[in-house]
Design a protein around this nucleic acid. Structure first.
Lengths: 224, 224
DNA sequence: CGCGCCGTTGATATTATTCAAGACCAGTGG
DNA sequence: CCACTGGTCTTGAATAATATCAACGGCGCG
């Protein structure tokens, strides 16, 4: 498991106890839901490999992508509030997931203050993640939003030990657009523009970041 | 304290223990910060009367309003992640706040499963609150966003036992705009338009909702 | 009383969406 | 193996939504 994750700093005994409550890995093919909106909430899910998107559905059946989750991320927190999942999580490629039964996690975290602390950290990080996204979507123009998206992915891949300058987008243009509050054509245009300015190289879903500085500059360049 | 709040369902003993760790009320005049971005995180704050906004600041010094908190809300969760507050909370009128030291709350919640559960609920609700706002800002046109804002306030005031059709906006047009991802002029225009259509009556900060159905209809009317 | 923020409204400019067409690609079935 | 299909992506032109600029009235506070 990962640095920013539940077992951080736990002793070997505690670690073993935590392991014992984690179920075996489950596999999800591309497009399969890990959980659906309305499902009874019983567990968190740790992504061991692959990736997922989380989406909320508006009354009109409109889908809004609220998260793009990579290996090492934990998803499912949204269900804690009222015992049912408020969003759905869908696998974006072949994905392996470990189920962490939440009732038992709560129980164990009563005995292990450090585990409790880590759980709280995870919950809080989810909050700041969302608020950050809110800042991006609410206050930046589209160009800066896409630049932010790319740079944030870059950083997340680096944290995971992968290349921070070349990676595959598992989201479609439409999904990226939904995530960033714009239309798919706009996403496409901006990626093309970034490429023509020499900031990135993009071929379908494969991005290579060529000029991180310039991308950063785009972000602060103009308000909205 | 309130229904959706920490002491829900606790016995009288547990209640007393919880009370014992809550500090006396503090008062904040309009414009005063309850906590600032970068402050060391030590406590949550329960709003007993009045209201606050929470804002995050981008690198460019741009302010994004991420929350509008009324009496009964608890704020400060954002600091749990890394021990420092990620946003600032500012009083919008004369406001009374109770400080809840977080370390002691964690400790107590290890002994009281129900308290633990309530704490987790609060954290999770904060997450779904943000994701809902994301849906609003990311996928609705400005008209629907403002309608959603008014209806959500209506509901929150009702939950608190106040009039759900007449209330005072403690946020300026600029703050509302920031919260909803639009410009202050746009907010002003939309409120005027709603008024001229007979949906609301607005005089400065005082709103009266006249046609809830029509406001609801506006929301689903069109995507973006 | 005067000054600074707040709010409204109109005219104009810009940004982003919509509509439309075509290229590309992967999967499917003949 | 190839043609077919449906989804994805790109790009252009027209259009609609929203921001910007500007002027002014009003309110609250010192």
């Amino acid at each position: 498991m990962r640095e920013l994750c539940l077992p951080t700093g736990l002793g070997t005994d505690a670690m073993r106890e935590l392991d014992s409550l984690v179920a075996a890995r489950q596999r999800f093919a591309k497009g399969e839901p890990v959980f659906q909106s309305g499902d009874r909430f019983t567990a968190l899910y740790a992504i061991r490999s692959g990736s997922c998107k989380t989406t909320v559905l508006s009354e009109g059946g409109r889908e809004q992508v609220t998260g793009y989750h990579l290996m090492g991320d934990i998803i499912g927190f949204d269900g804690i509030g009222n015992g049912r999942h408020q969003c759905q999580a869908v696998s974006l490629e072949d994905t392996e997931v470990c189920e962490v039964p939440f009732a038992r996690l709560e129980e164990l975290s009563r005995q292990l203050p450090l585990l409790q602390r880590n759980l709280h950290r995870l919950l809080a990080r989810e909050i700041t993640r969302d608020e950050n996204l809110l800042l991006v979507v609410g206050s930046m123009r589209v160009e800066a939003r896409v630049a932010t998206f790319l740079l944030s992915l870059s950083q997340r891949y680096r944290q995971r030990g992968y290349s921070s300058t070349e990676f595959v987008l598992r989201l479609t243009r439409k999904e990226i657009g939904s995530y960033l509050g714009m239309k798919l054509e706009t996403v496409s245009r901006l990626l093309s523009r970034f490429q023509s300015k020499g900031l990135i190289k993009i071929e379908n879903r494969v991005v290579r970041l060529l000029d991180l500085q310039a991308l950063k500059a785009l972000i602060s360049e103009h308000d909205r």
